[in-house]
């Protein structure tokens, strides 16, 4: 299945944000869920199981000057194998203009047994843009070994590289769950905060397997591994 969803958020001139464009197609449905704040909140609603092998899903997000958009999802997405071993792919492309803010806070990605999934996100921030970006990856459903999944995140700020991260898990990569990578943890993730107005927080230890790190640039990254999704969220709650 191929699907494209597109969100364009603009400042409404009254201190709030309006959605100039909100268009999804199955299985990527979008719902505007107003909460009375200056931020427009959109929920992604997966109307089918998956992503399934062979699926190619694309989400495009544009946040204009002074606009504020929060994207969430109603449930975890579960990457599942297709019939013939074809990989599945989810691509997110986002741009945020100066003074704009994007909060990308979806539920977890679960890599189910046998999946071959690639999630690729590319974010371009203009100088003066803000970003909160969460990625959570769960290695398999309950009592299950995961398939192969790659979660890649690339963020530029003001035309310069800010973050390039690609996390690969699954049986196709030697050592993936070993002591140099996940140490047997079934959940891992990160929370990136880009805020040009705030001084990056100094490095700090949040737990035995969770730290907060200043990047080179106006940004801080929390990175964690955890035994399960619940403990992980405790480190990455936003």
């Amino acid at each position: 299945m191929r699907a494209l969803a597109r969100i364009v958020a603009e400042a409404d001139g009254r201190g709030g944000t309006r959605l100039a464009r909100l268009r999804g197609e199955p299985p990527l449905q979008l719902r505007h869920t107003p909460d009375g704040s200056a931020t427009a909140t959109v929920h992604l609603i997966g109307s089918a199981a998956g992503p399934l092998g062979g699926d190619d899903l694309r989400i495009e997000i544009e946040v204009g000057e002074g606009a504020s958009l929060c994207v969430r999802s109603v449930a975890a997405s579960i990457a599942l194998p297709g019939r013939d071993g074809t990989p599945s792919r989810t691509t997110v492309v986002a741009t945020v203009a100066a003074g704009g803010e994007l909060r990308w806070l979806p539920e977890q990605l679960v890599a189910a047994a046998g999946c071959r999934h690639q999630a690729t996100s590319t974010v371009e921030l203009a100088g003066g843009a803000r970003l909160l970006w969460r990625e959570e990856l769960i290695c398999g459903r309950h009592d299950e070994r995961p398939g192969d999944a790659v979660v890649s995140t690339s963020v530029d700020y003001g035309g310069a590289p800010l973050l390039r991260q690609s996390l690969t898990i699954g049986p196709g990569t030697p050592g993936w769950d070993g002591p140099a990578v996940l140490g047997g943890a079934r959940a891992t993730g990160s929370l990136l905060l880009v805020d040009p107005a705030a001084a990056p927080a100094p490095p700090s230890v949040l737990g035995a397997t969770a730290v907060r790190m200043p990047l080179t640039g106006p940004a801080t990254l929390v990175s964690a591994t955890a035994p399960d999704a619940h403990v992980l969220r405790g480190y990455l709650d936003a």
Partner: peptide
């Protein structure tokens, strides 16, 4: 340079920060 590999190992980063303390 942008297209070069970017593999991340969470525990490499986490334990480097712990070690530094």
């Amino acid at each position: 340079p942008q297209e070069l590999p970017a593999h991340a190992a969470p525990l490499a980063d986490i334990s480097a920060e712990l070690h530094a303390t």
